[in-house]
């Protein structure tokens, strides 16, 4: 359901009306979770905690914006977690060599984009299924980052401006949140209001149709891969900055969190369907749950279980809703 761009679908039945729209379900879930947690732990609403949540959301959201577009074109990238770690290491190394945060950041983003380009070329030129292709590049990156540097690369020059990328503030707002907001809004506008966005939907909905209509399908898919890669670069910088180091072991499982959030937001794995608002909500649901588990002082290992359950439950509901609609 492209409800972000199409008129709201009419819900024919009671079930359809109840779970009429994936996003409404997510908003409701979010409200229930927030209220539930805050009843138990009032300091959930403390500004410190809210900022902590936002910072967590920011990291995932940045990459999820790219991943949403990629899934809309009916491709997927599982290498984002491995790339995330590598980006931090590369950026830190370049900073140490050049003594320039700008060059380091540039190198990090360029590295991420390069990974995206390689993924995209393997998928579009060699016609390798993107799931398999990016499992391959994930392995290459996971191994490669250790071959590059066995240990974490520290911020040798102790440049404070690098730390600011992840830990700094503009007024009360953390810099990563601002970065994420800018990226989100830009992505939203592109997907919703531009020809590029519409073409991404077209390629994912039916690649042959898109090509017969004169679209450059290969180029469009490459764009989505490179964009996702570059956004991994941005997120990798933030992560590196928060740790003030390039940590080769960082980012394990990050790809799964990102994909879970995007799918939770209603984007289809088979392409042509998806919304960024949904993705935003998906990221929030997962990260608020994460945070709730911490403030409730539950066992943090629940942070792995809950997203899995939420993900499957959400898709289940979506299927129920679609069946109700079809009736």
């Amino acid at each position: 359901m492209v409800s972000e761009v199409s008129a709201p679908p009419k819900s024919a039945s009671l079930v359809g009306a109840l779970v009429g729209n994936n996003q409404i379900v997510l908003v409701a879930a979010l409200v229930v979770i927030c209220v539930g947690i805050s009843l138990a732990v009032p300091q959930f609403y403390s500004s410190a905690n809210i900022i902590a949540i936002l910072r967590q959301v920011a990291m995932v959201l940045i990459v999820a914006c790219g991943m949403t577009m990629l899934l809309i074109t009916a491709e997927v990238d599982l290498s984002v977690g491995a790339s995330l770690a590598f980006v931090g290491v590369v950026a830190m190394d370049v900073i140490n060599v050049t003594d320039s945060v700008f060059l380091g950041a540039l190198a990090g983003i360029a590295f991420g984009a390069l990974v995206g380009l390689v993924n995209g070329l393997i998928v579009t030129r060699l016609k390798v299924n993107s799931l398999i292709a990016t499992i391959g590049t994930m392995m290459i990156l996971q191994g490669g980052v250790f071959l590059y540097s066995r240990e974490a690369i520290q911020n040798h020059h102790h440049l404070p401006s690098f730390v600011d990328i992840g830990a700094g503030y503009v007024g009360p707002v953390p810099i990563p949140v601002i970065v994420a907001a800018v990226i989100f809004i830009a992505s939203y506008v592109v997907l919703r209001h531009t020809t590029l966005g519409r073409y991404l939907f077209a390629v994912g909905a039916n690649e042959k149709t898109a090509r017969l209509s004169g679209l450059r399908t290969t180029w469009l898919k490459l764009f989505a891969f490179v964009l996702t890669g570059a956004l991994v670069g941005v997120a990798g910088l933030i992560l590196g900055s928060l740790m003030n180091a390039g940590q080769p072991t960082a980012g394990r499982g990050f790809e799964l969190t990102v994909i879970a959030a995007v799918i939770l937001g209603g984007t289809s794995l088979s392409g042509g369907r998806g919304t960024l608002i949904g993705t935003l909500l998906g990221v929030f649901v997962l990260k608020v749950i994460d945070d709730g588990i911490i403030v409730l002082q539950w066992n943090q290992d629940l942070q792995m279980i809950v997203p899995g359950v939420v993900l499957i439950a959400a898709i289940y509901l979506d299927i129920l809703r679609r069946r109700a609609d079809a009736r």
Partner: peptide, 12 residues
Amino acid sequence: GEGLMLDLPVVY
């Protein structure tokens, strides 16, 4: 197979 984007609205 080659003409319609089945899940997308008529206008698109």
